[in-house]
Write a protein that binds this DNA or RNA. Sequence first.
DNA 1: CTGAAAGCGCTTACAG
DNA 2: CTGAAAGCGCTTACAG
Lengths: 368, 368
Amino acid sequence: VSKPRSTLSDIAGTLGVSVAAVSNALSGKGRISDDLALRIRAVARDLGYVPSVAGRALRTGRSGVLGLVLADLAHPLFPQIARAIEQAASERGYGVLIGNAGGDVRAQAGAIARLIERGADGVIVVPMHGTRVGRLGHPVAVIDSPSTPGNTVASDHFDAGRHIGRHMGQLGHRRLALIGAHADSVVQNDRIAGIRAGLGAGARTQVIWIAEVEQGRGPGAALGLADLAAAGVTGFMGLSDLNALRALSELQRAGLRVPQDASVTGFDDLLWSRDLSPALTTMRMDAAAIAAIAVDRLVQQIDQIDQTADAGALPPPGMPPAMPHGVAVPMRLIVRHSSGPAPDPAPPPALRPDLSQSDRTEGTQIHA
Amino acid sequence: VSKPRSTLSDIAGTLGVSVAAVSNALSGKGRISDDLALRIRAVARDLGYVPSVAGRALRTGRSGVLGLVLADLAHPLFPQIARAIEQAASERGYGVLIGNAGGDVRAQAGAIARLIERGADGVIVVPMHGTRVGRLGHPVAVIDSPSTPGNTVASDHFDAGRHIGRHMGQLGHRRLALIGAHADSVVQNDRIAGIRAGLGAGARTQVIWIAEVEQGRGPGAALGLADLAAAGVTGFMGLSDLNALRALSELQRAGLRVPQDASVTGFDDLLWSRDLSPALTTMRMDAAAIAAIAVDRLVQQIDQIDQTADAGALPPPGMPPAMPHGVAVPMRLIVRHSSGPAPDPAPPPALRPDLSQSDRTEGTQIHA
DNA sequence: CTGAAAGCGCTTACAG
DNA sequence: CTGAAAGCGCTTACAG
């Protein structure tokens, strides 16, 4: 059985002071003598005082809770993202309420609305497949979708592609297959463009979309990777670890040795990537940085609402309205055993363009 | 910019009635004429009225929010569980606040306490490795841990082991390796016992704990499965899909064909299990049933608190206190291509005990 | 520097 | 059947 929580007036009562004094002492806002503040805080500690979120929320109009909406809770990156968001939010004093759009793009708006109705001060959305998140009249931050102009945070997928592409190029691979899920994935197409830039001019790539193969030959159909290997392809680059897993599995099943006969790489560093044999070379997102940026922007929007409300809904004169732009956060290359030298390394081309400087950077670059 | 939400007194004002009448009409609790109730509800709809959770929470002492604490948000089953919990909770009018213990067993209690302080009416805990969740003085439900006597819901891991063991036995496997993570995992040991029961008397099994192999030979060390296959083992049963993936990968890397040379099975039906080549035979948890039971029990406890509070903290005379016992929910066998007939099927033993009736059932059995 | 008071939106006895 | 009132715990002008 739980003992009832103590309140401000409990503290005020034991000290014979007003609740206003207690509130001020605990929040450090109103003017109060150091002596009294100290005594109040001591009593609060003794009584195990915990502020009532309900009372505070009713009075301030803010719940101290952020919503987290995912198009599908079964998304493989969800654990990484949820953990980072929870961490970033709790560091800023916010709780995280989860919502699920059940994989349905149309249900996404409903999920956001439900969280707002539940009292969330703002919502972080991780949409799938570049769904747009329209203006909602509420603070929103979007993760990993380049579709919304403002308040978007994403991994820099082009840059990530370039890094792992360069890695494969340096290992000597000149003929490569890029294996992705859907041709309409913005993320995967960004990665493809980056990979090609990283490989440089001497390499030939071809793209295999699993959805298209399966549409023709049924779910679980072979992607024909062994044939490609026989025809001289030495690098198999999954556009996510899921796709890399499928490639690795199919190649090994066909009797090819990885990395001696062919190299395999992925993206995202999913939980099991290191458990594969050989362990998978991949790119890891900086979930902590992305979450911190998303939460900061959300909190900033929330605080701004209060200010504009105070200022009579008018923006300060002469000051342009906050127009945040998208942020791209670099991913990190994780080299593991699945990528080795190319079986038949071709000589490096005489002239290789230096791509170490960014040649396609939209928005701010964050460097770890 | 968001327009301010309408309140009960807005509705009362437009109709010229009292807020009490509006509250009663909307909740359907107090006596009110059908005519007035209808008019009130119509106005509420027109004004887009959404009750204020803060106001309600402050008045009732209940937030309408449940906490979900996971020992580690990176747990591979987290997506399945979180989705099911969110679904079950929202069907019952509750939101879900997430907490993370960061993989630290000691941080678990802290995470629970933080959610309670944030106002959660109760907490669902998914502990790792059979952590105990002590009495907290707050409603708690525990998922997938048999350690707490009451309010525990888990998959029936023994029963699940028996099912997949029987499957392998029927395919003709007589020598099998069971591959697990840690020797101290209650879940995995339950599965082992079930597998042995399902295989019957004619089979020989040996257990390989990955943690022990790696302690001796370093992380990512080979488990020596190819040697076992050469020595006559035909069935490789991972005690989770993660372990099965490792086994499959190692066997294929060594040149064995699955399922022609050896069969591989797992547990948990993780997201990518069907993407393996061959797709993985495994057992799937009934996350929806488990979540529904856990949430129902939690809500029951929450409601009980209110009742005992009303009744002066005394249990109704003559009625024993609610003493719930653990519930075991069956898992479902998913047969995919990775399990085939044994390479050299031994003749079935003359006498095989019928295990179709449960011989080890603690707690209630739920049948789908 | 400190106190008394109002009010956020709701629900629930209590009168009429 | 309906209304007036109290109060959940908090913060914030406003007086003193």
